[in-house]
């Protein structure tokens, strides 16, 4: 009796959790499939005839397509750079002892907490001077300030878990550190590198403040375009929600791939 009741409550609670977490996402996706009269219905309708017209609209809109391409270019490039620069640094932090190591380590972690507005102001002024505003490059570089620490952190953790014996065997064969890194640590560390790359991609893809401030027309990213629909009287809600869905869907898929590592990625490993 007691246990059946407990079990029912447990099931009910878990169902509520799923409803709670999925509702805004569900509402966005269904809204993107409603036609204008269903969207503006008051009270809102829950059952309706779905339409793909808004998706047709946004994929025909050159501005949206360009923005998605810009987001892809920026996120992929910054992720590639973060891995290229971060993985060797992680190797050094994982396997070498040197003075100042801990300070360096903490410096990487502190970068996680800094408000983007702190860097957005000076980077805007500097980019203005060197004519880098509204270029992919400035976003790619500034995104490294949060991607690089993530990559370094996750890869360090991964490299630490690789047995040192493998390295010693290779050294007996005459391999130098660079070869050991490339031939042993990179292949064995691929899971960690992949997780860190996915995180880096998610954070870059989701970013709004820097993109809002540092771009004008040509390299506006997807979140900036989605936000820009939010002006005027008649808001194109269907188009906005369709764009939102297109932006969010790929990151959710990626996030599901790394869901086991989500907590580590977001806390910089303070809790395992």
């Amino acid at each position: 009796m007691q246990t059946t009741l407990g079990r029912t409550l447990h099931a009910l609670g878990l169902t509520l959790v799923i409803l709670f977490t999925m509702f805004p996402f569900y509402w966005m996706v269904t809204s993107s499939l409603k036609d204008q009269s269903d969207l503006l219905a008051s009270p809102p309708v829950w059952l309706f005839v779905p339409t793909l017209e808004h998706y047709g609209e946004i994929f025909a809109d050159q501005k949206v397509v360009n923005a998605v391409i810009n987001s892809l270019i920026v996120s992929v490039s910054t992720t590639a750079l973060a891995v290229l620069l971060g993985a060797p640094a992680a190797y050094a932090l994982a396997r070498f002892e040197f003075r100042g190591k801990q300070d360096l380590w903490f410096w990487f972690i502190s970068n996680r907490m800094i408000s983007p507005i702190v860097l957005a102001l000076p980077v805007y002024l500097l980019a203005l001077q060197v004519k880098l505003l509204d270029t992919h490059l400035v976003l790619i570089l500034i995104y490294l300030t949060f991607n690089l620490p993530i990559v370094v952190w996750i890869c360090t953790d991964q490299f630490r878990s690789i047995p040192k014996e493998l390295e010693q065997a290779a050294r007996l064969d005459g391999a130098n550190q660079w070869i050991i890194f490339r031939k042993i640590y990179v292949p064995l560390g691929i899971p960690g590198i992949a997780v860190s790359a996915i995180f880096s991609f998610i954070f870059s893809w989701n970013e709004l403040l820097y993109a809002l401030v540092l771009t004008r027309r040509t390299v506006q990213t997807a979140p900036v375009i989605a936000t820009s629909f939010m002006s005027g009287y008649e808001l194109p809600w269907g188009k906005i929600m369709a764009t939102g869905t297109v932006i969010v869907l790929p990151v959710i898929i990626f996030a599901l791939l790394v869901s086991k590592h989500m907590v580590r990625g977001l806390t910089m490993g303070a809790t395992k």
Partner: peptide, 10 residues
């Protein structure tokens, strides 16, 4: 994971 991954602007 869904809320955590959702783009803040969205």
């Amino acid at each position: 994971v869904v809320p955590l991954a959702t783009t803040y602007a969205v």
